[in-house]
């Protein structure tokens, strides 16, 4: 069974509201197609149809207003009881690269796998934490002695001196 239509046009915008990363940031991971394919294989077609129908309504009703949209998401998409927990699974996927295992049939710690090797590398939790995934996107020799390059440092350490 396939979904009644392709929802890739909705997948990015609703992912952006769910993750807090804008659509350009999400696209820059190069994972959009893989992740859309993942949700459609991990869920029934009717679940996908229902989720995106609701997501479309939420986006329309929210009209781009942040508080309103967030409140609609909180009540109509986010709860674990909704759509087989799809909203939270989408967030976990973008942030960690893993499709959250079914709580009733979770693999052992050693067996659990990410969606793909690149899904791990593109995990957004590392970006959110001003760092990089361990073992990938290495920042270069000595970089760790300074605050990370990039987003402004909002809590600069003043007058560091080697006390020794």
């Amino acid at each position: 069974m396939t979904t009644s239509r392709n929802y890739t046009d909705l997948f990015l915008p609703i992912s952006a509201w769910l993750t807090g990363f804008d659509t350009t940031e999400l696209q820059a991971t190069g994972m959009t197609a893989t992740y859309y394919a993942t949700i459609t294989t991990k869920n029934t077609a009717s679940c996908i149809d229902d989720f995106f129908a609701q997501a479309e309504l939420v986006l329309q009703e929210g009209g781009g207003d942040e508080d309103k949209t967030n409140s609609l998401i909180a009540s109509q998409l986010f709860p674990t009881s909704c759509y087989n927990n799809l909203a939270q699974n989408i967030i976990t996927m973008w942030y960690t690269g893993e499709w959250a295992p079914d709580v009733n049939a979770a693999p052992s710690l050693a067996e659990a796998h990410n969606i793909s090797p690149n899904a791990y590398v593109q995990g957004l939790m590392w970006t959110a934490a001003s760092t990089h995934p361990p073992g990938a996107k290495q920042p270069g020799y000595g970089s760790w002695a300074d605050p990370p390059i990039g987003p402004p440092v909002d809590a600069p350490l003043t007058s560091i001196s080697n006390a020794r």
């Binding site: 509201w17 967030n70 909180a74 967030i91 939790m125 959110a128």
Partner: peptide, 23 residues
């Protein structure tokens, strides 16, 4: 930080609130 993501979700956080809490 995987557990911070799942703890954030369990606390009802998503979107900018989740990203900000990790940051």
């Amino acid at each position: 930080p995987g557990s911070d993501v799942s703890n954030g979700l369990a606390a009802g956080k998503f979107g900018k609130a989740l990203r900000d809490s990790l940051a």
